[in-house]
Amino acid sequence: MKGNLEAERTPGAATAVAAVELDAVAVRFRAKKKEVTALRDVSLSVAPGEFVSIVGPSGCGKSTLLKLVSGLLRPSAGSVRLFGEAVGGTRHDIGYVFQRAALLEWRSARRNILLQAEMRGMPAAEAGRRADELIEMTGLTGFEDALPHELSGGMQQRVALCRALLHRPPVLLMDEPFGALDALTREQMNVELHRIWRETGTTVLLVTHSIAESVYLANRVLVMTARPGTVAEIIDVDLPGSRDYAETMSQPSFAEATGRIRDLLGAATATD
């Protein structure tokens, strides 16, 4: 994030108002006097309310992609736009969920969620109502006063999700949010995230290692190649808007999409 990454933004008018738009983005950084290309020529346009999953081999720059969208990182080349506006610095109109819940150990679940409001200076009453709403939506009722170490991994991640949604961000960035959970909890979280996404209408970018998860949740899946990360293919997921987990798994279009991703990832790692 330091000065070794230079932003070079192409000036010009935004044409279609996409929620997130990446245009020929590249990220290069210097490591041990060698220039490393993390991302090369990545272009992606995400419509408002769309759910896009990003899969790819380890170290292909998936997380870097989310950092670019949030403005935590500036591209070396190309442009990043949020709702037509060039990303110049860290954006505050996003929600971020990491693989580790990153909760403050000394705060209860509810107060961890409210951190978002305190940092933003949101009115306390409104923030409190919104927190209660999210607590109910994510099934955290009864755990509001628990400290993070008293919560299971799934519960902790729910708290992180509530915190990310508190300020009603138009864009939600999720970096392998369920990577550390056991398979069963992960499935439950997938079902809940799907429901929450449909209820909130937020644009979601989800980085994941799970092919099934990427397809089940998304409208489209961005498959990336190994480093330097480029777009291998963007796959349209042909599944209904509201998805039942078991039913979705048995759909021919689900099998088709996961099969295609598996082929692409196999090819990506084979050239490694």
Binding site: L72, R91, H92, Y96, R100, L104, E105, L115, M119, R120
Partner: peptide, 26 residues
């Protein structure tokens, strides 16, 4: 946790708030 600090940045937190609510207690 560096991710905690990045999170604070996306919340638009001032350095003083980040210190008082995250860094110092941690």
């Amino acid at each position: 946790d560096p991710e905690m600090l990045q999170l604070a940045a996306t919340m638009g937190a001032s350095p003083l708030k980040t210190f008082a609510k995250i860094r110092f207690p941690a």
